[in-house]
Design a protein around this nucleic acid. Structure first.
Lengths: 257, 257
DNA sequence: CGTTCCATTGAGATGTGTCAATTCAAGTGG
DNA sequence: CCACTTGAATTGACACATCTCAATGGAACG
């Protein structure tokens, strides 16, 4: 049933492996990130059976849009997704970036409608997890229920970290914190913690961090001049991790359970 | 079993009623706010049985502290609670204010330790809901499970609204949005939407909204000069609700499911 | 009736936004 | 393969909202 059918390019910066976008949870190399470790193989299979895997999203395509009725949460398999909402006066607010192994869409549960839109920053594959089925399964598998409570709770604490960042920190600190966050999330996926390609534009970064594009650009230039980063368009190399940590002055990388 | 034992002052601005802090869920006038409507009376009773009700918290007392092991979430019955975390450099970031009928502490689920501290802004009564018991009950009562998913999801969307506010809005817009938020939460509890007493200090407001005390104070003065608010220390009267909405320029009062 | 904390108000400093010009990167069509 | 177009990124000069510092006033409490 879960025989590879077609391969798509892996959006990971590793760039070497390709894998089938219909691969099962049991054989997905990200399963330690998005599944509760406690599940046995028959349980994983039951979860696997409710998950939908469609064709990959092209860059710019929407996964879902703000306001549409909520039916599922999504796990990123490859690529990168940004979530954003549009303010009343038409401006965009980026609320998060989601990388492989991370789950998005949980904001839609409370009102049964998505509270933000999500679109692919690059070609991305996602697993769709229908929420009603997930709820039923959670009733039978307490570990799964707990896992989702934890995932949502983590989303809350991460949002609160962002709130603190926006409320208290300078432009330099915000950028440093974001770079460190991406770095540690890369590390979690066994990718380089010091060298990566940003999937999002400067506009998106500024939007996420409450800064203008110009400020983002200036900060990157300054950090480069300080020999802390090497920036070449979207290619980032962290030259001085300690220095970056010092500038960030916040712990954003310690979000393990 | 749930016979009134001792009355405490209700922290509500109505200020008139008093009620027993050990009252059961079934007879609590806030139960439409914090319980799923779908529960029948025997289910409410089962939930009631796991809930702990201790003595009220005095102003300044902690409900829980950042880092301590997580065991329960809490429903506010009267008074007001602020949640905050302390940044690495020792400054405080207020992450939320919680009024009667609202639930806090869900940030602690992901790491099994509270991600922030919570302390009473005034004399407050809370119901403690042990999380492990809640989880077990959720497995048996799918409506309860869904309710908690929704509560957590709402927390996420509210945090994202705050993120947008901090990222995009001016000091005036932030204050206006907070006043409107408090106003609509008062209305939800059948209290006055236009006149209330702020339980928190200017410092806390500034801290929450990413502003200094001075700016908060100046904005209140300006809004007063514009005949939009009447401010007398912590006593607030909204004179021009439309004007306030116009200034806020964001929808913060429409968070019904 | 001090003491202490909170709130208000003013004057000046500053980080970030705004506006504008230039460069760079990527894609398109001749 | 090279102009051409388009959007992204960088850099500079200036403006302005908010912060900082400082002084005063007011409320709460023992």
């Amino acid at each position: 049933m879960n025989i590879p059918a077609k391969s798509v390019g892996d959006g990971d910066t590793s760039g070497k492996r390709t894998h089938d976008y219909r691969v099962s949870c049991g054989s997905c190399r990200l399963n330690t990130l998005c599944l509760p470790i406690a599940l046995d193989s028959t349980e994983v299979e039951r979860l696997d059976n409710i998950i939908q895997r469609g064709r990959p999203l092209q860059k710019g395509e929407h996964l879902y849009q703000e306001g549409v009725s909520f039916s599922a949460v999504y796990a990123v398999r490859s690529g990168a997704i940004k979530a954003y909402r549009v303010t009343d006066d038409g401006r965009e607010q980026v609320t998060g970036f989601y990388f492989p192994g991370e789950i998005l869409g949980m904001d839609g549960i409370s009102k049964n409608a998505h509270a933000c839109s999500a679109r692919a920053l690059e070609t991305s594959a996602v697993c769709e997890i229908p929420f009603s089925a997930l709820q039923e399964l959670s009733v039978q598998m307490p570990d799964l229920q707990r896992h989702f409570f934890q995932l949502m709770s983590r989303e809350i604490t991460e949002d609160q970290q962002l709130i603190t960042l926006l409320s208290k920190n300078t432009a330099e600190e915000r950028i440093a914190a974001l770079m460190l966050s991406i770095s540690s999330r890369n590390a979690r996926r066994k990718l380089s913690a010091t060298q990566f390609r940003l999937p999002m534009s400067r506009i998106d970064i500024g939007n996420y961090l409450g800064l203008t594009v110009e400020t983002v650009s200036r900060v990157f230039s300054r950090l480069q001049k300080l020999d802390i980063l090497e920036v070449s368009n979207k290619e980032i190399k962290i030259l001085d991790l300690d220095g970056l940590n010092e500038i960030a002055n916040v712990h954003v990388g310690d979000d393990e359970d």
